[in-house]
Design a protein around this nucleic acid. Sequence first.
DNA 1: CTGTTAGCGCATTCAT
DNA 2: ATGAATGCGCTAACAG
Lengths: 342, 342
Amino acid sequence: MAKQRQRLTDRKSKVTVSDVARMAEVSDSTVSRIMRGQDLVAEATRERVMATVRALGYVPNRIAGSLASLDSRLVGVVIPSLSNIVFPEILQGINAGLEGTHRQSVISVTDYDLDKEEVVVRNLLAWQPAAVLIAGSMHTEATQRMLENSGVRVVEFMEIDHKPIDAAVGFSHLSAGVAAARHLLQRGYRRFGYVGYGGEKDRRALMRYKGMRACLAEAGLAFEAESVSDGQTTVAKGRAQTADICARAPDLDVLTFSNDDMAVGGLFHCMSAGISVPNDLALFGFNGLDIGRALPQPLSTIRANRFEIGKRAVEVVLAGETRPEQSVIVDTGFEIFEGATA
Amino acid sequence: MAKQRQRLTDRKSKVTVSDVARMAEVSDSTVSRIMRGQDLVAEATRERVMATVRALGYVPNRIAGSLASLDSRLVGVVIPSLSNIVFPEILQGINAGLEGTHRQSVISVTDYDLDKEEVVVRNLLAWQPAAVLIAGSMHTEATQRMLENSGVRVVEFMEIDHKPIDAAVGFSHLSAGVAAARHLLQRGYRRFGYVGYGGEKDRRALMRYKGMRACLAEAGLAFEAESVSDGQTTVAKGRAQTADICARAPDLDVLTFSNDDMAVGGLFHCMSAGISVPNDLALFGFNGLDIGRALPQPLSTIRANRFEIGKRAVEVVLAGETRPEQSVIVDTGFEIFEGATA
DNA sequence: CTGTTAGCGCATTCAT
DNA sequence: ATGAATGCGCTAACAG
């Protein structure tokens, strides 16, 4: 009785199915059916029920619903960073893929820290997600085990240079590095410098670097100077590191960057310092960001499609609830964009 | 019996508190207490239980936990876009503010569509979040009502030019527009052009525009040419629209942009077209993005602190579970960055 | 087409 | 310091 009264006055007290059912003079199940859009209900009752739903401002409790149906409709997403523009782009692809399904993404960020990733994955699995989309292939043993044993679909995205837990969507960063170096060698460059960020933390940037180095080695060459910084990737760092490497190694003929942000900064340094690009010094990025194409000289780079990686990753998990016998690998590829800086 | 056996073989079947309790020979409540870090348990039992937790790979089900405790520990976040870099930056601030608490953010994107926002908010509230952080102050009537009646803390972030439902964190975009125009007038500019995106959809860009226009009007001036595009904000669009407006109105002396992305594109056009900045044409942006400062000529702009907006928004909801009598307004401010382009 | 009956997995009294 | 009982709000058989 007291509780009853409270229900009517306390704005925060939740309206439940039973409240709606009682007022509409039907059973709970009927309300539940209607709310879930099942079509085996009489049009008349549906309308009556919907009217009281609106009158009471009833919002179904998905927590209770998920518990009862053992389906949370959640898709866990684990990314290393939000400050590197490529990850928001992947999130856009994921959202696009999820659009129209009844699934919701829950995003967690690891800051490129594998221990943090472990915590984040544990917390995510606690929500009983229908699937987990996780950036990268390198995890702690515990993370690996949790993901394997969870039984849910797991897509490791960004890279495909490994045997996935369940599925992988992305491209080979090693091959991308090789392709970049080969392209630049073909164009006649011989004296290479490297400007990057993240060091050991961004394994994928490292793989591209290794790919380039291996390709150069085959040609009897090596990077003559390198500049690698910590933390996040920024245009400002690219500019500063380029200034630094130009001072230390003035005779390079091409600078390869871990990514476009850094390369754009490199170009800005050259503009300011009066270095003619690509005649005095050529620049080559990685990612194919929008900004690179809008520069006074379009940036030479390797394009990869982040949006598509996100979208395809979702498609893989939507394709089936259970893991396939054979792990799935989707190669979204990459392509050289010639541009005007190399 | 059959179910029992399934539990042991089927990797997907979940381990529950009861499984752990039975194996560790304690009651469910004891396991529950331990998992929640309550300290009124004997060290010996705790260790025994934790050992079986690890052995079974038990992960507590937060859905069940939330239902039982009526606390989801979720914070709903509603943003219009992921492609505009300012929103990922705000998300970083939100994550930073949430770090260490036991709260998790759940992000939804509206694409600047108020009807979509309504759907998204309804879906979010279904998860019984402890709070909702939502960009902007303009909502449909239904959205407004849902948020009001939800009883949870609601922070509208980005703008503070309105009476909030509960709290607002951000700054006055109108004032920012006025400040920009006043600054440029003081520096002697008289013939203004405007380059923007989003049209009616990005209300905040519109507010800044209106602020500028009002300030110009006071000085007996007006924008002599304008170029506004649809869709998302990109450097490429800024460049194209600047080219367009320069062709149509060659005698302007300053171009104001809806934001830095567009302004950077504008600068790129000028570089390519041999227009001397700021002598032939001055450029003024908005946001204070990293890239603007790394340009050969630092971009003149208004800086606003997105990270802080996210962080402060979280602080407001962490400050208390119930809405204060008086709605809270946090002004994170903005500042003119002189730069070298105006 | 609609109602009844049982849980989903856990947190929370209240005992002991 | 630990256990037993109750219910969070909803969905899923199963009846009718």
